[in-house]
Design a protein around this nucleic acid. Structure first.
Length: 574
DNA sequence: GCCGTTTTCGGCCCGACTGTTTTCAGTCG
């Protein structure tokens, strides 16, 4: 059983306890544990097999550790099943409706016998809900709207779609006089792989003007709220965007508050409370004197608490506070550290642009090199290269390197790892390329054993430099293949091979927690955009954001190396 | 249920909004 499945069970327990009316701190403990397990870089199953203590995970104590062991080793959890059996089935569906909390859900269930969204909708339409004391027509009406919104609403959207929308709006609002500091907050700023909505923050001499401009944007399909400092809209496509403007002097605490994560804020505020400080979006209040201190920057806010600045990507309550206390948060990799792109496709296979167009785009980005890694012939649908065409492409790249200055084009291939573990090209071909990326593109439903052996076989092949998109998952789409990543990482570390962070926002593969674990095990990582056109080369920032979430420094990422050092490394076997 | 620079027991983030209120409970982020 995977960590995210375990996390889902504990979240479900939290919901059931909430419905039951349990102690709110017990509920919060289950929620906290669910988040912690979801973000934990190691598989709990592996830890249990190795006899390691689950209580090392922050937020997991004796009781939850015991439940996790039972759940993972037997596939069942008696506590959970008893809880489900005692409560009306499907009741947590009601809690998923915004505006309905445990109290309301319990009344709907107890007084009207409702336990599903459909039943609730019927009861509202029959007027039964509005007749409950303490509720009313307005409440019933809102429930109906929320049910309809829930049915239309797409799930969380990939960061690759959300960030450009946010930036477009920031640019438009930047034209308003006296506006400053416009920036995304929330999960978008933390570079999570998906976001539920977009939060924008900023300061202005005249905040109301900015909100007015926001509500009047051409992208806006519906205005939900429009005040003097806050606006909330739905843009075309259904995504909700909230804007919040404050005076310049309180921006630091505002941005900190709305960047979250919620678990990070809770941990931070608990710590502040022990110091006699009350933290909020308005600033820090010294509890004994009731005096409010304001902060124009997040750096000052964290410093006031005796903490090193914590980059947004690390704010997931995964030990970053302890590190900040010791002033030992490392300098994370930045986009400007990237010296080249190691994964790109051209018209030779399934890309849209020529080798030269990609090379010039890479030079414009300030890179020193770009590797052309078209597909091998085994990828029939991708118009892969056979040996003849690969020789032709190598000749073209050689001629281009003679002609171009300021950028070095590396010859390469994304060679298919076939179902039987063999590679699409023989040693005589692969050994003549600057860089060889190997990846799985077919037979994705193999058993975990077979898939793991298949990929480790490629890692052990001396011709292979990089393993690309190791899990083949698609964000919000295809599930990852069954593969023992721990074993893959250990093999990569042992053979000194590189594992890719695929920066394409639909892939983001490795994902953050796995990249974290790979780094811990000493695996060198590379960020590749998998560009199929020059415009895709901008995906690098998503890969960098992911690497930062994995606490990666420049030294952990292969393509922060300058060209000369990179060539030494990839040519060592040739 | 978790956890410790007061504490192994007694706390546990904080403020805003909404609707149905006559002083606030419930919910959310």
């Amino acid at each position: 059983m995977k960590n995210n499945e375990v996390a889902r069970v504990f979240q479900d327990i939290a919901d059931l306890l909430e419905f039951k009316g349990e102690n709110v701190f017990k509920i919060r403990a289950y929620e906290r544990a669910a988040r912690a397990i979801e973000h934990y870089p190691r598989e709990l199953k592996t830890m249990i097999e190795a006899g390691e203590e689950l209580r090392d995970i922050p937020g997991v104590g004796e009781a939850i550790a015991g439940k996790a062991v039972e759940l993972i080793t037997t596939g069942r959890l008696s506590y959970y099943e008893n809880l489900k059996n005692k409560l009306p089935q499907g009741i947590t569906n009601l809690l998923a409706i915004p505006g309905i909390g445990p109290k309301t859900a319990r009344r709907l269930s107890g007084e009207l016998g409702i336990s599903s969204v459909d039943e609730l909708e019927r009861a509202i339409n029959e007027g039964a809900v509005a007749e409950l004391s303490g509720l009313g027509n307005k409440t019933a009406e809102n429930m109906l709207h929320q049910i309809q919104a829930l049915r239309r609403k797409d799930q969380r959207i990939p960061i690759g779609e959300a960030l450009p929308i946010a930036e477009e709006i920031i640019i438009a609002l930047g034209a308003v006089a006296g506006v400053r500091n416009l920036t995304p907050a929330g999960s978008l700023r933390r570079f999570r792989e998906t976001v539920g909505d977009i939060d924008l923050m900023g300061t202005a001499d005249n905040p109301g003007q900015v909100v007015d401009a926001f509500a009047a944007l051409p992208q806006v399909a519906q205005v939900l709220a429009h005040g003097s400092t806050k606006g909330s809209v739905i843009v075309k496509g259904g995504l909700q965007i909230d804007l919040r403007m404050v005076n310049h002097d309180a921006f630091g605490s505002l941005l900190q508050h709305f960047t979250g994560s919620q678990q990070h804020n809770i941990a931070l505020r608990e710590r502040g409370r022990r110091q006699g400080l009350t933290l909020s979006e308005y600033g820090i209040t010294v509890t004994s004197t009731d005096e409010l201190e304001k902060f124009s920057t997040e750096e000052d806010f964290y410093r006031r608490l005796g903490l090193q600045y914590i980059p947004p990507e690390l704010r997931e309550a995964q030990g970053e506070l302890a590190r900040a206390e010791q002033q030992s948060i490392p300098p994370l990799v930045e986009l400007s550290d990237m010296k080249g792109d190691l994964h790109a496709h051209t018209r030779w296979s399934d890309g849209h642009d020529s080798v030269e167009e990609l090379a010039l785009a890479a030079r414009d980005l300030g890179y020193q090199y770009i590797a052309i890694t078209d597909h091998s012939a085994g990828r029939g649908i991708a118009h892969g290269l056979d040996m003849d065409r690969l020789w032709q492409q190598i000749a073209e790249i050689k001629a281009l390197n003679d002609r171009l200055t300021g950028i070095r084009v590396l010859t390469g291939i994304e060679v298919d790892i076939r179902a039987d573990g063999s590679l699409d090209f023989p040693h005589e071909v692969l050994s003549r390329l600057d860089i060889v990326i190997a990846a799985v593109h077919s037979s994705m439903h193999q058993s975990q054993d077979k898939m793991t052996r298949r990929v480790i076989g490629a890692i052990e092949d001396p011709d292979v430099d990089v393993i690309a998109h190791p899990t083949c998952r698609l964000v919000g789409g295809r599930e990852p293949v069954a593969i023992d990543l721990e074993a893959v990482f250990r093999a990569a570390a042992k053979n000194d091979k590189i594992v890719e962070i695929n920066a394409m926002p639909d892939r983001l593969d490795l994902k953050d927690v796995h990249a974290f674990r790979a780094r811990e095990l000493g695996v060198k990582l590379a960020i590749g955009t998998d560009a199929h056109s020059t415009s895709h080369m901008g995906f690098m920032r998503f890969g960098v954001g992911l690497a930062r979430r994995a606490w990666c420094q420049p030294r952990h990422i292969l393509n922060t190396l300058p060209l000369s050092e990179l060539l030494v490394l990839v040519n060592r076997n040739r």
